[in-house]
């Protein structure tokens, strides 16, 4: 019994120290992370995207809003890498500039979703009782509501715009992270070191900040990255259905415009394929990173319990 006990602890320790490294010094996570090929590929892909999108004004060959009457619906060529739209706009330049909007909305909304989910999960998991009961019921209700129709209704009601998309995504999206954080918190607070902190006289805030949050950081970070995927997809979906911000064109808006201008009907594949591919590839890249973080840095119950 003592022997197997020790082995369990050591196992937990090594898992824990991995998660410490994930949240410790800035690049301490790298040695563990690099073991996953998929994760490294995802990181490189996202790196390329971010690089291209930040440098969009310098890479873009044309003004994305300029309508060239002489070049309407031209197939890809050396002057227009991805061809032109029905209005004569350069698809390649549009793609780069729209990427800024897509990525920004994605990261901002995912950040807001993660923050909200984490806070609610911490409160529900730590305090338990009636507070937990109420928050869990609200999450359950949001979880069973059909997502897309509700989003359409909300978006239609609030009017198109970036903030609408962020708002809708946050209101409906926090439940998944909240549930995971809550579950982690509930297992964390059983630890004797939480008890020890209480016996010292520490307050709830101190305990959550020092003893609970570091243990859920892995879940939070992994979920943040995965949430980026969800949000980028949702944003694309809402924009494609016409609820995007007309002033800030995103990849979803590009698809919406392609549909409006009849690119699908007339076989102008270069107008819809690039934004569609970008959404898919960026989503996959974020998934790669998120899943790698999830696999390598998130403490799971089975890891803690499973000695042999």
């Amino acid at each position: 019994m003592p022997l197997s006990g020790n082995r369990q602890f050591n196992d937990t320790d090594s898992r824990l120290s991995k998660s410490i490294r994930a949240i410790g010094p800035l690049f301490a996570w790298w040695p563990e992370y690099r073991k996953s090929k998929v994760g490294v590929i995802g990181l490189i892909m996202v790196g390329i995207f971010i690089f291209a999108i930040i440098l969009a004004p310098y890479i873009a060959t044309h003004d994305p809003t300029f309508k060239d009457r002489d070049f309407m619906w031209k197939a890809p060529s050396f002057s227009h890498f991805f061809g032109t739209t029905a209005q004569g706009k350069d698809v390649f330049s549009q793609l780069l500039h729209s990427g800024q909007i897509s990525l920004m909305i994605g990261v901002a909304a995912a950040g807001a979703v993660t923050a909200m989910g984490t806070i609610i999960g911490l409160i529900a998991g730590y305090f338990g009782g009636i507070v937990d009961e109420i928050l869990t019921r609200i999450a359950d209700i949001l979880l069973v509501l059909p997502r897309l129709p509700l989003m359409l209704v909300l978006a239609a009601y609030l009017g198109p715009g970036m903030s609408t998309i962020v708002f809708v995504v946050v209101i409906l999206g926090w439940t998944r992270i909240a549930r995971q954080v809550r579950a982690q918190v509930m297992s964390c607070k059983q630890h004797t070191y939480v008890e020890r902190a209480k016996s010292i006289g520490a307050g709830n805030f101190h305990i959550i900040w020092n003893h609970i949050l570091p243990n859920v950081a892995g879940v939070v970070i992994a979920n943040f990255v995965l949430e980026c995927v969800t949000v980028i997809m949702l944003e694309a979906g809402l924009s494609f259905l016409g609820f995007g911000d007309p002033l800030h064109q995103s990849w979803g808006m590009m698809l919406f415009n392609a549909q409006n201008e009849g690119a699908f009907l007339f076989g102008a594949w270069w107008q819809w394929l690039p934004p569609g591919a970008c959404i898919a590839v960026l989503g996959i890249a974020f998934s790669f990173i998120g899943n790698t973080l999830n696999d390598r840095f998130v403490l799971r119950l089975k890891n803690i319990k499973g000695g042999a």
Binding site: D13, H191, T192, R196, G201, H206, N210, H211, N215
Partner: peptide, 30 residues
């Protein structure tokens, strides 16, 4: 401040994420 506890489990009662300095100093910080 006058009564403190020493726990049974020296493996579980110290937060593995924190340094020894932080653990020993925790009561005076609180």
């Amino acid at each position: 401040r006058q009564m403190q506890m020493v726990f049974q489990d020296p493996f579980g009662s110290l937060n593995p994420v924190r340094t020894i300095r932080n653990i020993v100093a925790e009561p005076v910080r609180v």
